[in-house]
């Protein structure tokens, strides 16, 4: 009887170790994907001051949006964890999209060569962010599904594996297709 209980305990321990390793592997892939996304986001943060400075000259009446972008950029750069970063970046996306809509009302700015070049550069960065987001979301989905399945959810609870939040389309993205890259 003692041997049987010992074998059962050993099997359970081995199973726990295997499951823990799998969860950790998946979690690390989420983290790697996020660091990829973070690099792309940093590229965008670096573009923000230029964008704000360029637009400011033309759209004096839109200072609300510009201020919001600046504020969000500062907050995003100092985000403490992935979820916070995801949340702030969603807001930043909305703000940039709103700015883009506002620019529609300023033909001088819209036709400015510098602005067009900046828009193209932003577009490319957005595309890279979009790719990084898709990678992040795919990995988060795999991880969340894995730790959500019964009985893996119990193991996840024991070891403190929590689900991650995915990047989803923002309200502005849903309403208009502008700036949604690919």
């Amino acid at each position: 009887m003692g041997i049987i209980i010992g074998v059962i305990i050993a099997v359970v321990i081995i199973l726990m170790i295997v499951l823990y390793n799998n969860m950790l592997k998946k979690k690390n892939r989420v983290k790697t994907a996020f660091s990829g996304l973070d690099t792309m986001l940093k590229k965008r943060y670096d573009l923000m001051p230029n964008l704000v400075a360029m637009v400011q000259k033309y759209v004096a009446h839109e200072s609300d949006i510009l201020t919001r972008i600046t504020k969000l950029r500062a907050r995003a750069q100092s985000a403490k964890n992935i979820d916070e970063s995801v949340k702030i970046n969603k807001e930043l996306d909305d703000a940039i999209k709103q700015l883009n809509i506002s620019v529609e009302g300023y033909p001088d700015l819209k036709s400015s060569q510098n602005y067009l070049q900046m828009q193209a550069a932003l577009n490319d960065v957005e595309e890279q962010i979009s790719a990084a987001r898709r990678t992040y979301n795919a990995n988060v989905e795999t991880y969340n599904t894995y730790i959500g399945m019964v009985p893996l959810n119990i193991v996840a609870l024991i070891f403190g594996f929590k689900p991650y939040e995915q990047f989803t389309a923002t309200e502005v993205e849903r309403e208009n297709k502008i700036w949604i890259n690919q």
């Binding site: 001051p49 230029n50 400011q56 510009l66 201020t67 600046t70 504020k71 950029r73």
Partner: peptide, 22 residues
């Protein structure tokens, strides 16, 4: 120097002024 002839310090300054004003 950026292609749009706005350097980082200048851009940050404008952005910060705008932020502070708000």
């Amino acid at each position: 120097q950026s292609a749009v002839k706005i350097d980082r310090a200048q851009a940050e300054k404008i952005a910060t002024i705008s932020f502070k004003a708000k």
